[in-house]
Nucleic acid binder design. Structure first.
Lengths: 238, 238
DNA sequence: CGAATGTTGAAACACTTGTTTTACTTCACG
DNA sequence: CGTGAAGTAAAACAAGTGTTTCAACATTCG
């Protein structure tokens, strides 16, 4: 019997991403790190364009100049690769363009303008790489996969809560509660979901805003609408 | 030679939908029409949920209690089935809930409210069947396939033009041109793309509006924002 | 050096996809 | 009747999917 049944742990692939920071004296051979990187970049590109099911492992590996087995080796399977892509995309996006910090004691109007300006730039501006990073997140926003849940709890919920708080402070006393809630959601939809209309609007002759001035204008219109609405209910109505 | 090479046109499947209206004395056997219908219903359901590539003809045929060959017979191929589904969905939606006809000489505010109320109900309300019909259209809005182009030209463009006209009339003199354009697009995005946020907002504790009162509120907030924005620029600014 | 480990590439696996072929049934009309 | 077209069903097709196996390579350590 030439090959015994010794099949228990033959290798131990570095699934948990090998924690880029620490390097306990023996580095993970250094050779594969750029291949891992290429795999991740290609994965973000294709997952963003075609979604989790639409993108194929072979496509991704071809673009990354890697063998299909590399996915198993570095990420376990397709889901692991997707999870890593999502994490990488979220981290890169936030790092590149961090959310605005509220100037101490800023009034709600200023805060709202800042938040919306940030959200608008976040979702519609940037080169092809940034668009890919954004689209992979936006896709999760409309069809969340289990992988997204954690990200939602740590990032999404607090941010939504903040906008909600701003709108509520802004409309204090002027609007009945349900109307204020709806207003907050409208603002969020306007600011973040614009991307979903881009194909349609471009086809109809309205390309998305690109320059800083155009982004300013879009953000100004959205925040201006919310503020004017509250003011009109405060001054005129009642 | 038992079987000669007679292979030219063995059958002539009724691809072009057999024009439901005319029936030139000999009806198309009547037997297959409900199978065709079942196929179409199942196709709308799966295409809406999974998209063109995500849905499989075997799934659709199983649900429709039909053989896979029926797709070839009635629609030529998967694309033909998709085209027919899209047409059927658009027609059913418009027929069920036709767009508002402008009351002669109505002022822009009233028109805007009517349009938005219609759009909101169109995209977010209704039972599971209606949701499927809407989703298949919304999916095309963000990732148009060639099949959609025609529908876009005949339905989409005029409707968008109308909203644009209303907003321009509303803001006449109060807003510079580019701001008015952006405002129109914001209104459209708010009114139609809400659906894309439903999964996210539901998960965060904000289910979509369902009752007539909630739909009224949402429509009122959107149109109210646009109107208040224009008014604020007319009265306060300049 | 030899041995042990990290990394890679080619091939195959089992499965699903859309499409097509082929034989078969059903049924109106002559 | 029986002829021929309308419609159906089963099976096979080629291509593509995610995943796995296994032999080989590369690199480091004892």
């Amino acid at each position: 019997m030439p090959s015994a049944k010794r099949k228990a742990q033959r290798k131990k692939p570095p699934f948990p991403a090998a924690a880029d920071g620490d390097r306990p004296a023996r580095q993970p051979r250094q050779r594969g790190v750029d291949k891992r990187r290429r795999l991740l970049d290609a994965a973000i590109e294709f997952f963003a364009r075609d979604g989790f099911e639409g993108a194929s492992v072979r496509q991704i590996c071809t673009r990354a100049r890697a063998n299909v087995a590399a996915v198993k080796y570095y990420f376990g399977d397709k889901s692991g690769l997707y999870r890593a892509s999502l994490d990488a995309a979220a981290e890169a996006l936030i790092a590149e363009r961090p959310p605005p910090v509220p100037p101490a004691g800023a009034d709600p109007r200023t805060m709202l303008r800042l938040m919306i300006r940030w959200a608008v730039e976040f979702t519609v501006a940037g080169g092809p790489r940034r668009v890919a990073l954004t689209r992979i997140i936006l896709r999760e926003m409309r069809e969340p996969t289990p992988v997204f849940e954690e990200l939602l709890a740590t990032r999404g919920a607090p941010m939504l809560g903040e906008v909600r708080g701003i709108v509520l402070a802004l409309s204090h006393g002027a609007l009945p509660m349900p109307a204020a809630e709806r207003l907050a959601l409208c603002v969020i939809v306007c600011a973040t979901q614009y991307e979903h209309s881009i194909e349609l609007l471009t086809r109809l002759g309205y390309p998305p805003p690109q320059t800083a001035a155009e982004l300013d204008l879009l953000a100004e219109v959205i925040s201006g609408m919310a503020i004017a609405y509250v003011d009109s209910r405060r001054g005129g109505g009642s």
